[in-house]
Amino acid sequence: METIRLEFESSIKAKILELLSSFSSDELKIVQEDSTFEDDKRKLQSRTDKIHNGTAKFYTLEEVDSILEETISKYEN
């Protein structure tokens, strides 16, 4: 199956759903979009842009381990 994303005026939603309901569940499945999709998309695009333009900060595994150990030690007691 393929997935597409549709944007439409709310005034035609009933017509679209009526048309889509003419297909069987084997042919078409309506998937509700996550309410945070657009926000997540913007965040991921921003991070991708930073990687591509060279401004992203990367850490070695040792650096991450050190940061995590420090953070955990703050909240142990």
Rank of each mutant, 00 (worst) to 15 (best):
Met1Gly: 09
Met1Ala: 00
Glu2Gly: 05
Thr3Leu: 12
Thr3Met: 15
Ile4Thr: 11
Ile4Glu: 11
Arg5Cys: 07
Leu6Val: 09
Leu6Arg: 11
Glu7Arg: 15
Glu7Ser: 14
Phe8Trp: 10
Ile12Val: 12
Lys13Trp: 06
Lys13Thr: 12
Ala14Trp: 10
Ala14Ile: 01
Lys15Tyr: 13
Lys15Ala: 10
Ile16Pro: 03
Leu17Phe: 02
Leu17Trp: 00
Glu18Phe: 06
Leu19Tyr: 13
Leu20Phe: 14
Leu20Gly: 01
Ser21Thr: 13
Ser21Trp: 06
Ser21Lys: 04
Ser21Leu: 14
Ser22Val: 05
Ser22Met: 14
Ser22Trp: 07
Ser22Glu: 03
Phe23Pro: 00
Phe23His: 03
Ser24Val: 02
Ser25Leu: 05
Asp26Ala: 04
Asp26Ser: 14
Glu27Asn: 03
Lys29Asn: 04
Lys29Met: 03
Val31Gly: 00
Val31Cys: 10
Val31Phe: 02
Gln32Trp: 15
Glu33Thr: 11
Glu33Trp: 04
Asp34Gln: 12
Ser35Trp: 10
Ser35Glu: 15
Ser35Cys: 09
Ser35Ala: 09
Phe37Asn: 01
Glu38Gln: 02
Glu38Leu: 13
Glu38Asp: 02
Glu38Met: 08
Asp39Ser: 15
Asp39Arg: 14
Asp40Lys: 13
Lys41Tyr: 11
Lys41Arg: 08
Arg42His: 06
Lys43Tyr: 05
Leu44Glu: 11
Leu44Thr: 07
Gln45Lys: 15
Ser46Trp: 13
Ser46Thr: 09
Arg47Leu: 14
Arg47Lys: 06
Arg47Gly: 01
Arg47Thr: 01
Thr48Trp: 15
Asp49His: 04
Lys50Ala: 04
Ile51His: 05
Ile51Thr: 00
Ile51Gln: 01
His52Thr: 06
His52Pro: 08
His52Asp: 03
Thr55Gln: 14
Thr55Ser: 15
Ala56Tyr: 06
Ala56Glu: 14
Phe58His: 10
Phe58Tyr: 13
Leu61Gln: 04
Leu61Tyr: 05
Glu62His: 10
Glu62Ser: 06
Val64Trp: 11
Asp65Gly: 05
Asp65Gln: 12
Ile67Gln: 09
Ile67Lys: 15
Ile67Thr: 07
Glu69Pro: 00
Glu70Lys: 11
Glu70Thr: 07
Thr71Gly: 04
Ser73Leu: 11
Ser73Glu: 03
Ser73Cys: 03
Ser73Gln: 12
Ser73Ala: 09
Lys74Thr: 07
Lys74Asn: 12
Glu76Met: 15
Glu76Asn: 05
Glu76Ser: 08
Asn77Arg: 02
Asn77Tyr: 04
Asn77Trp: 08
